[in-house]
Each structure stands twice: as C-alpha cells, then as structure tokens.
Simulated assay, not measured.
Amino acid sequence: MLKKTLVASALCLMMAPAAFAQDYTIRLSHGDNESNPTHLTAVKFQELVKEYTEGKAEVQIFPSNSLGTETEVAQALRMGSIEAEILYTGNLVPLAPSAGVLMLPYAYTSTEQAHKAMDALIDPLNERLTKEAGVRALGLMEKGFRVLTTNKPVTTLEDLKGLKIRVSPNDIAIKTFRAWGIEPLPMDWAEVFPALQQRVIDGQENPYTTAISSRFFEVQSDITEIHYMMWTGPLLISERAFQKYPEDIQQALLRAGREAVDYGRQVSAELTEQSKAELVKNDMTLHGAPKDEEKWEAAAAALWPEFYDQIGGEEWATQAIEIIKATEK
C-alpha cells in the first residue's frame, strides 16, 4: 500500500510541471463599473479566452481601477507584472505617443468609418506600441463620440462663444476648443459635476452614456452632437507576457481580443441609443449635429500639424492619416 502511494505521489510530481505549463492567468484591469461597456467587453474577452484556449488560460477581471490608475497599470504592463488592461487612449499617450493618432480631431466623423479606421490602424500601430510602451493592442474599442452638454442651446459655432467648457487635460482637446474661439477649462474628472452644479463651468464633453452615468441631466439642459473626437480605448496585453505564451495561446488571445472588442462596440451602440432616450425623458434637449459643423471640422483639422510631434512624429502621423482617409472610400 505504501509503495503504491509513493508511486502515485511520484507520478503526480512528474505530471505537475507539465500541467502547470498549460495554465495561464491573465489579470485584466480597467477603470469602469460593472455596467459600463468597458466591463462588458472585459467579460466577453474572459469568456472567449476560456473557450479558445480550452481552459488553459483564465482571465481575472479587476474593475474600477482596483489594481491602480490606468497610467500606473499601463506602466506595470510594460514590466509584465500585470498582464492586460482596457484604458482610455488619452491615458496611454504619455507612455505610447503614437496612440495619439486615434485622438486627432475630426479624423473620422461616423461610427462606421471609425471602426474601419481603427481596424486598419491596429497592425501598424502595434509595431510602435510594442517598442514605445511594451504593450500590444488586441483590439480597439469605442464608446461613442464625445458630445457637448451645456446649460443653453448650442447649434452653431457662434453659440459656443462665451461659454466655459471643461475638457480633459490633454493638449489636443484644449487646442481644439481654442480654435473654436473659447478658452476651455482643463479639470480633473472628480471636480466636473460640482463645477457644473455651481455654474463654475457651463458645459463639458463626453459620450452620451457618461451623461447618464454621471447624471449630467440634473445640471445640464442641452446636448450638441459634435463629432470631433471618439472615446477610444485599446484592449492591451503586456508584450513581455504575450511573448512568453506558446503560439496557440497567442493566437487564441488575438482572436478573443478582436471578437470581444467587436462585441463591446455593439454594446456601446445599444447603450448610446438607450442613453439618448433616457436623457430626453429627463428633459434634456438633443440638438443633433451643429448646423455649421463643417466650420468646426475645418478649424480642428487645420491643427493637425501642430500635434505631429506629440503623436509619434510627422512620418507616423502622415502614414496613419493616409490609412484613416483610405477608409472613407
């Protein structure tokens, strides 16, 4: 009996390394709550990774920045101490400037074109992301255009004059609003709602879904559907971790990433339409696009050369813009 037990134990020890070699844990961090399209995308990725690796890889999801801020986690991905993350493109740019091409104002003006452009950009972009930040994008998700909420109707560029508008603290957003004739107010996110409530600012820009989740309908009356910038966010994996996986696991992750992002885009579109209906029920007026949006677009697009040095250099910016424009055909 003892001999059989010893033999069984020895067999277990011999088999353990092989079994362990097939098990991969992928920790995925993001900054949103569990009702957000970001989290729903993460859950779909989790399901697909399990399916496509036949259970060899497991994705553990950490929502609401529980592993650290988006920038902190992106730095951890470079070292391979955390394996995956979904984050706002603007928070990746400090580590990977080339990702900034996704934020060029009016680079794309419809959701359909944006999807085509992002899918066409991902491979050349990854050639740069892996070098700049040690990360690889498995897919590029979006949560809609950043629309303008205000406390008065804005249907033309002239209506914007004199308003105090909060923007995220990045140079592209700041300079774009300056080109439209106002001095925007960069402000930390936590300060935005009380600033709107106290009329320190007159408006802000974010997707429709944010207007619902942040209850902006309580302190704002109008929405203008400008198309200057889409909320984009890559589903990233640490390149250091990725290169340690065998070929079959790598291919499974690439496939799962693409399909999860496609799912997330669909969910985002559905939630955007739901948000619009709910905002109307809460007495907000949705004005659609500005009557003179071509003026907004022309003023913003004229700024592109000013941003080239910030988004990976003129050569890359020119290449990326050509790729984007080719998707308009």
Rank of each mutant, 00 (worst) to 15 (best):
L196I: 06
K131W: 00
E112L: 01
L102I: 09
L92G: 14
A252L: 05
P305K: 13
D262G: 08
F20M: 12
A107R: 05
A269L: 10
S110W: 00
G139K: 00
L138F: 04
G181P: 01
S275P: 04
R199Q: 00
V267K: 04
F307D: 09
L279F: 08
A277C: 02
L236F: 05
S238R: 03
Q197M: 00
W316K: 07
V200P: 00
E294W: 14
M230F: 03
G139F: 02
K143S: 07
V73H: 05
A326T: 02
A300L: 04
E127W: 08
V135T: 11
A96H: 04
A320G: 10
N206Q: 13
S221D: 09
G68D: 12
A211N: 14
A16R: 02
G90N: 13
L236Q: 05
E70N: 11
M118K: 00
A19Y: 12
A302H: 06
S168L: 09
D283I: 04
I165R: 05
S81D: 14
Q319T: 06
Q46F: 13
Q250L: 09
V200L: 05
Q243A: 12
L77G: 05
A195R: 04
E315I: 14
M79P: 02
A277H: 01
E34T: 15
E294D: 15
P37H: 01
H287T: 00
D262F: 11
V101T: 04
A277R: 02
K295H: 08
Q220A: 15
F62Y: 13
F193R: 05
E191P: 08
E158N: 12
I223N: 10
G233A: 13
E315N: 11
P37F: 00
L303F: 12
R199F: 01
D171F: 14
L160M: 05
I226Y: 09
L6C: 09
G144M: 03
E247Q: 12
V167M: 09
T5D: 09
D188Y: 15
T224Y: 07
Y208P: 03
G203S: 08
F177C: 07
T69C: 04
K164P: 09
V261G: 02
Q22F: 11
G264I: 01
D283A: 11
N33F: 07
Q319I: 04
E293P: 01
A326D: 06
E54C: 11
G264S: 05
T209F: 04
T209K: 01
I61P: 02
G139C: 00
T5A: 11
I226K: 00
D159S: 11
R255M: 13
Q46H: 09
T89H: 12
V147L: 06
N33I: 11
L235V: 08
G139R: 02
Y88P: 09
H227E: 15
T25A: 10
A137M: 12
T38I: 13
E191Y: 10
G313K: 14
L196C: 00
